[in-house]
């Protein structure tokens, strides 16, 4: 474990807490894409299957359980909560997630470390996480005025990925033989997708104006 990875995990944890706080405090999920949240739950469930058969550390196990439970909780809020579900804009959140999930599964079946069920599902989760934010970014472009907490949520998610890039550079420099091409390439693409958002987020922050992504 290194400081970059720990900071990345904490930023990821914070992003989910910010999202839950926003939904719970405002009793609204306006601007939040249910599709992205469902994709994240799928990412966590397919990636953390090793919870069933291997133990790495208390930290590792706790964080995996937190990510699965918290994303399930966000989905419950958006789908079931009597007040919050009224504020979900399904007419705007129309990204065809199958166009993301199917290519990721096909790629996972062809490009993987090992052709076993858990390894293919793990690889699928790596590819899927790279594109899971797209429905959320598309929704932000459509809903003109993005509320601050939702903007912060996406910014923290991007920050967690950027910290993971630093973590990989650090591990390459300090751990001879450490190679994770699938994770590195997929994670770099994922972080690149945030660059556009980072630009508009920082611009709106410096001009002290509402965040709005050009459609």
């Amino acid at each position: 474990m290194n400081i970059f990875r720990f900071a990345g995990d904490m930023t990821h944890l914070l992003s989910i807490i910010v999202l839950l706080l926003k939904i719970n405090a405002t009793k609204s999920c306006a601007g939040v894409s249910l599709k992205t949240q469902e994709l994240y739950l799928l990412v966590f469930v397919t990636r953390y299957l090793d919870l069933l058969y291997s133990y790495i550390s208390l930290y590792n196990t706790f964080m995996k359980l937190f990510f699965i439970c918290s994303s399930g909780c966000v989905i419950w809020y958006i789908r079931e909560h009597k007040t919050v579900s009224q504020t979900y804009d399904s007419a705007q959140d129309t990204f065809r997630v199958l166009f993301l999930a199917c290519p990721c599964m096909i790629l996972a079946l062809t490009v993987n470390h090992d052709f076993t069920v858990t390894e293919v599902l793990w690889t699928f989760s790596i590819y899927l996480e790279a594109v899971a934010i797209l429905p959320q970014l598309v929704l932000l472009q459509r809903t003109k005025n993005v509320d601050t907490l939702t903007g912060n949520y996406v910014f923290l998610l991007g920050g967690y990925r950027a910290l993971y890039l630093l973590n990989w550079i650090y591990r390459i420099l300090t751990e001879p033989g450490y190679r994770q091409w699938i994770v590195w390439i997929s994670g770099t693409i994922q972080t690149a997708i945030y660059c556009d958002f980072f630009y508009y987020y920082i611009k709106s922050w410096r001009n002290n104006e509402r965040l709005s992504l050009p459609s």
């Binding site: 995990d9 990821h12 090793d50 550390s57 590792n60 964080m63 751990e175 190679r179 994770v183």
Partner: peptide, 10 residues
């Protein structure tokens, strides 16, 4: 790389 380092990231 050992199985440990492969899957120790979240």
């Amino acid at each position: 790389s050992s199985i440990f380092s492969r899957k120790d990231e979240l």
